[in-house]
């Protein structure tokens, strides 16, 4: 090995060590509860589940299928009555649904996660409700969507592809981001930035 190749090693080695330090630092000091979503840009898993409320004149809640909403931009929110952060974001969800209430290309759906019927209904009676909800009895919908806590919200495009996953409450900057950078472009049929 000649002198110039030794110099290459001398440059490469500290660089490699630096890269490893960066990787380990990221692993050790990153947020341990943050798990990068792998489900974004994959087809939204279809589900069939009973609605939380029965419609007037019906004895039992009817079953809802996600694929019934194909062709629309779907905001799918996972929530529970025992979740304090869900209550925090609930006004934002009502506001988003109110904003697009007249738009036939938009629909918002709630998935009640690990909850009981009465507390869920009491929660909605207390915090208000202007969109449909289904119950996830077996946890199958939640696991299909890779849920590990609530609230989590997905934005699905008109073709049925998951385009955004929001972990935590949709409030403040996240609210603006979801509405302006995700929902609006998807409704217009534009590509998302980034």
């Amino acid at each position: 090995m000649n002198r110039s190749s030794i110099k290459t090693w001398q440059v490469f080695l500290p660089l490699a060590i630096l890269c490893l330090i960066v990787v380990f630092y990221h692993g050790l000091y990153g947020n341990p509860s943050y798990i990068p979503p792998v489900i974004v840009n994959t087809p939204a898993p279809d589900f069939i589940a009973p609605e939380l409320y029965e419609e007037k004149g019906q004895r039992a809640p009817r079953e809802m299928r996600l694929s019934d909403y194909k062709g629309k931009v779907v905001v799918l929110n996972f929530w529970a009555s025992w979740c304090t952060e869900c209550a925090l974001e609930h006004p934002s969800l009502l506001e988003i649904n109110q904003r697009y209430a007249q738009d036939p290309r938009f629909v918002m759906l709630g998935v009640n996660y690990q909850d009981k019927e009465n507390p869920a209904k009491e929660y909605l009676a207390k915090h208000g409700n202007n969109f449909k909800h289904v119950r996830d009895f077996s946890g199958k919908i939640s696991i299909d969507y890779g849920i590990y806590g609530v609230p989590e919200t997905f934005v699905i495009d008109k073709q049925g592809m998951i385009r955004h996953k929001s972990i935590g409450p949709i409030i403040g900057q996240n609210y603006t981001h979801v509405v302006e950078d995700i929902i609006e472009p998807l409704l217009k049929g534009e590509a998302l930035k980034g």
Binding site: I35, P36, I39, T42, I143, D144, Y145, G146, Y148
Partner: peptide, 18 residues
């Protein structure tokens, strides 16, 4: 489970990528 949650869901990381 990996397709839903990513590699995080397996206790033994797969010998793949990073």
């Amino acid at each position: 489970f990996i397709s839903r949650y990513g590699d995080f869901i397996v206790l033994k990381p797969r010998v793949k990528g990073i």
